[in-house]
Nucleic acid binder design. Structure first.
Lengths: 256, 256
DNA sequence: TTCTGTGAATGCGTTCACAGCC
DNA sequence: GGCTGTGAACGCATTCACAGAA
């Protein structure tokens, strides 16, 4: 399989296409895109951005799919949700695709981010270069520790969490990132919500209770580890159990 | 995610192979649990652990579902995948449930973890208390920076990435965590794989190419943010566009 | 009666396979 | 010939709804 060396972050070149609001047909489409496809579009976008930097101008569904780790039928289906921007017999124009995906993902607007909880993870997030360069400027940091208040992290001074509501409203934060200990997460979440934040990325291992109109995405390390653990166990069991179809041996199981 | 599930096969399970391994019926079940359910089981487990600490001994599907943020039918279905451990008319015994979920998730074994890339995120991971306490001892740390080599982080000395293969094999690492910059990720991944690591948690924004028998889970901050961005955009569009069903107004859109 | 456990029905996402255009 | 775009088929996951145990 062609090992496209996927470049990571990079400046997204956005041709023309200034801050227009979405026209009716885009609006229509966005409604219909499956959640799973949205996640993949973001991946395609990154791969494509890497292509732009390498000077690639055209790409086939097969190539792009390979680089993104999906099969080509799925890729074409995903792209078809956002419109028909390919050329039969040829492939897709990389820049065209980039700009359309960006538009669908709403990346033509800036989305200010607030990070709450400036521990190890919060530091990592505040310093994460991938955010600002991709249209997600970190506009505010919060922590409960008064000693941190005012100290700049990644160039932004830390505020006290008591000020979440006012500061977030002031700076028009649209995405809140919760990187606090679990005990604090729900309270922080409530404050974010009352500041008008409608999208939350939650790193705390808690199930947040929010109003219906708030979108929460969870990143749960323990859960990820446990899913992996499950697979380890399943494999060990399969190996220990009977050989079913064409299964390898000596610890390395082939074909689940 | 490359794992395909094999389909209907008359799997013959043999009793009593290696003594400490899961018994035949557990093995049988594990094979059949949908991936999505596995992720939720991990969540139920955490909620239940909290219950144990609070001294709760029995819980109904309704309560547990509420605490885990799912509906009760789904919860019961998920639990049914691992067996029938409830009491009709009463509910589930919390401790019984905990131990069965732990068994299914393979948490009765230790899974040694190696973290590669000791930047901000790597530090956060190395210090993350949730790992060791839940059966995921961090057994090794790696970085490319020679200045870091030998320096202990979270109590564990950092090794140079050139030693990944030997050290991981030595310490029987079963889960590798990649927290490097994107450019380094694939090379690191290859080394982990050649050290026998079959499960990888990848924080680098790259699509890793791995053999089929390796399980990769990806945590991609940029993708998460972009999914949220999509929702912000969709909402703004809905608000700007027509009122479709029973959608609220004045900036607060109801029903995602 | 209460609440679990589960077949059956439904919905969603993925894959297939080919029509349509270059 | 090559490659996209997409209806149709398929399989997996969720939800329904009720039978059955305490």
């Amino acid at each position: 399989m062609a090992a496209q060396r996927g470049e990571g972050d990079g400046v997204v070149t956005r041709p023309g296409e200034t801050g227009t609001e979405a026209p009716a047909d885009v609006r229509e489409r966005a409604r219909a895109i499956p959640e799973a496809a949205v996640a993949r579009l973001a991946v395609y976008l990154r791969v494509l951005s890497g292509m732009v930097e390498q000077g690639v101008t055209t790409i086939s569904s097969e190539e792009l799919a390979g680089a993104a780790g999906v099969n080509s039928a799925k890729l074409r289906k995903d792209l078809s949700y956002i419109g028909s921007y390919g050329t039969r017999g040829v492939g897709y124009d990389v820049e065209v695709l980039v700009s359309h995906i960006e538009r669908i993902l709403g990346l033509t607007r800036k989305h200010s981010v607030a990070v709450v909880g400036i521990g190890n993870l919060g530091h990592a997030l505040a310093n994460y270069g991938g955010f600002p360069s991709r249209g997600f400027p970190v506009a505010a940091l919060f922590d409960i520790d008064p000693d941190l208040t005012g100290v700049p992290v990644g160039g932004i001074p830390v505020n006290h969490i008591d000020d979440i509501t006012t500061v977030c409203a002031e700076r028009e934060v649209s995405i809140g990132v919760i990187a606090t200990p679990p005990q604090a997460a729900q309270a922080v979440c409530d404050r974010l919500v009352s500041a008008g934040v409608q999208c939350i990325l939650n790193f705390a291992p808690v199930v947040l209770q929010v109003p219906d109109y708030v979108e929460v995405r969870k990143v749960d390390l323990a859960v990820e580890m446990q899913i992996l653990s499950f697979h380890v166990a399943r494999r060990a069991d399969e190996a220990a159990g009977d050989v079913v179809n064409g299964i390898g041996v000596d610890g390395v199981v082939i074909r689940p």
